[in-house]
Amino acid sequence: MEYKAPVESYSGRVVEVVIGRGEKALKIGGENVLPFHFFEGAIANPPRLALEVLDSVPVGWSQWEVNPYKDVVSEPVQWANRALELGADLVCLRLVGTDPTGQNVPGDKAAELVKSVASAIRSPLIVYGSGDEVKDVEVLTKVAEVCAGEALLLGPVVKENYEPISKAALDYGHCIIAQSPLDINLEKELNVKLLKSFPRERIVIDPLSSALGYGMEYSFTIMERTKHIGIMFGDSTMQMPIIADLSSECAKTKQAKESEKQGLLWELVTAISLLLAGANIVVLRLPQSLKILREVLEGKL
């Protein structure tokens, strides 16, 4: 008798989130099997690869990190288009300039920049605020308003500021990134609270991504458990796609600062690991690691 490998089927499915409108629209998640379990079912949408773009000239980047963009680092629109030319599925715009401990760019100015980038590129846009939970309210609600209808993916939305930001995202048609500090119970709590007033189909989970050697296993295990709980156990509050925002975490490691080769390896290995854990979007800095990762995903490596 011929051997037939047993095939699992699961009760849960990851929510399909669509970011961007019209021709730009990009689907995230949607799978009803565990990451890379092609043998158990169809994976609705492949993991999406984003390259990061800053709202201001990068500070503290190594020369080799700046090189692919050295002629456009002061022009976020051109930088974003360069990222897409280099193979990114979408762009992640970081509003680091809005940080109140730095340049403290006001929300309306940041929103104008986001609008100019969003309307100039052919991909949807992820927008991360500075991570200051107070300032992000001003910045992200303004971005939501000015970019109404762009279906941006806005974050981070955290326990302390989810109400005003999610309300603005709801009113102006955007998706949000629900971020929690490497703790699956807090991750669920935020989801439960958001779901009372915000649709599941517009939430992406950011459990925080740590770099290889700097706590990556915590991120890995939380992403893995999120998938288990959502897909295998059917917990509807844990079925949203996951974003692994790992580029800055990898770039700031001692190893990445030492050499280009190590920097590339660090970002690549962290990204592959978190994809295996279940990330649906990864945010990268290096076009070279994006290129290799793409080949891995397409089965060429």
Partner: peptide, 12 residues
């Protein structure tokens, strides 16, 4: 252990 704990377990 059938549903994942969170502080909001009564709200879900």
């Amino acid at each position: 252990g059938e549903t994942l704990y969170s502080h909001a377990w009564l709200e879900a």
